[in-house]
Design a protein around this nucleic acid. Structure first.
Length: 200
DNA sequence: ACACCGATTATCT
DNA sequence: GATAATCGGTGTA
């Protein structure tokens, strides 16, 4: 595998959050906690399209302490606690005040050879797959304190493989959003065919 | 102050 | 496939 490069975050400022969710498949997520580096290849995502999306925390323009992070500029990290137990990791997209976000739902492990050189000494590998939004944050050590931080600054980085050849990507409806009425059927979820999601 | 609920997961059958 | 566990966020008052 060729050396990954830090992503140019301007693609996160675009308006088409669903397209961005699809493009994030195959990118490399790196998390550093106190001299420990963990990483994974993004394999499953979901788009949340802001004020018009009944499944979004920001539906109807709702602004609370929690959702304030969603209104920041693309590239902001949105972490929230779900069911009082699981931290869920999102990447905010679009311009400031437009609360779009992509939920990262699954990652695959990555070989040390594919880790950027500057992280390799502190890299710790893990096995299996993290096929669930709560599982991957636990694997990578993403916590509530990461909420509202910026990607590519000091804790969470997004890289891409320049010669990555897109695998077949499955498009389907989102998981666990029955409360969203007809919006629960929107095809806003993506996953790589070779990866096995927990829920089909 | 208090009741309800959830962008889930593990553990059953 | 069905269901219990679990607790901070949120709305209502």
């Amino acid at each position: 595998m060729t050396e990954p490069v830090l992503v140019d975050q301007t693609f996160l400022l675009r308006d088409d959050v669903v397209a961005i969710a699809r493009e994030l498949i195959g990118m490399l997520l790196i998390v550093k906690n106190q001299s420990v580096v963990k990483a994974g290849i993004i394999a499953e995502t979901e788009a949340y399209a802001g004020i018009t999306d009944k499944a979004s925390h920001a539906y109807g323009g709702r602004r609370t302490i929690r959702t304030e992070t969603l209104y920041r500029a693309g590239g902001t990290v949105y972490v929230y606690l779900c069911y009082g137990v699981h931290h869920l990791f999102n990447i905010v997209t679009n311009q400031e005040n437009i609360p779009h976000a992509v939920l990262i739902r699954g990652i695959l492990p990555v070989n040390e050879k594919a880790i950027p050189e500057n992280f390799r000494d502190e890299f710790e590998a893990w096995k299996g797959i993290a096929n669930g939004p709560g599982k991957l944050t636990k694997k990578l050590g993403i916590r509530a304190s990461h909420n509202a931080s910026m990607l590519n600054s000091d804790a969470i980085w997004l890289y891409k493989f320049p010669e990555y050849h897109p695998v077949e990507i499955v498009k389907t409806s989102r998981i666990g959003v029955d409360y969203a009425g007809e919006d629960a059927y929107l095809p806003y979820r993506f996953y790589a065919r070779q990866y096995k999601p927990a829920k089909i």
